[in-house]
Amino acid sequence: MSSDTIRAAATDNTGDQFPRAFYAVIRAIDRFTDVTGKLIAMTMLFLVVTISYEVVMRYGFGAPTIWVYESSFMANGAAFMLGAAYALLKGAHVRTDIYWENYSERKKGVVDLISYLAFFYPAMITFMLISIDDAWHSYDTGERSQESVWRVIMWPFRATIPLAALLLMIQGISEVLKCWYQIRFGREFVHKEKIEI
């Protein structure tokens, strides 16, 4: 989201506004998520390079690698998990409510706010606590992959799960504040384009 959009939201003439800190928090979190999402997307370049290397080595020189398979599925899995907060920022998660389009903007804000507080945060906290324990156990035991003879250590891959939950919860703070804005003023804080699948 551009800072001009947030500045416009903060300075429009709709009566009582939220404090400047309200908008600053949204701006800081959204910027953080945007930057981390774009950095995580760079993982795809790693996948393109390593898989291309594997294809050339395997079919061009008859010398397949032992590390590309595992590194590619771990990089792809990590990017999928860590990119979830960026998808939340962009409104790319699937919404299955068939009545959603008929709701007023205030009602959408109320439904989203209740969903974040009653479902999203409890699920993310549980997800994070369980996965931290799993990642710590992997680190503590020196767990190694059984997928290939490379036998790569597993704890960095397992650590992406609690990190993904943390990134989602951070972006969730911004989304909760946007719901609050939507409830108070009866309009979206920033319009998110529908993503057709």
Rank of each mutant, 00 (worst) to 15 (best):
F120Y: 08
G77E: 01
G172R: 01
T141E: 02
E193L: 10
V176A: 15
T126G: 13
M124K: 02
Q182C: 12
G83H: 05
A75F: 14
P122W: 03
V152Y: 14
L82Y: 08
S104T: 15
S138D: 07
A123G: 11
R187E: 08
A135N: 00
L113Q: 03
G83L: 06
W155K: 03
S174I: 11
G142D: 01
M169L: 09
I153D: 00
I132R: 00
P162G: 01
Y99K: 11
Y121M: 04
W100K: 07
D112Q: 11
S148A: 04
K194S: 15
K194Q: 15
M169Q: 06
S115G: 15
I130C: 09
L163Q: 00
V94G: 10
H93T: 10
I130S: 05
A123N: 05
S104Y: 03
M81W: 07
L177M: 15
A85M: 08
M128K: 01
E188S: 14
E188Y: 10
F157K: 00
A165T: 02
T126S: 06
F80C: 09
V152G: 08
V176L: 10
M74Q: 15
I125P: 07
Y116Q: 04
L163W: 03
Q182R: 15
W155F: 15
A79C: 08
E188C: 07
E105V: 04
G77K: 03
S174W: 09
A78C: 13
E147H: 13
F157R: 00
F119S: 06
E147A: 14
I173C: 10
I153K: 01
W155N: 07
A164L: 08
F119L: 12
Q182G: 06
T160C: 01
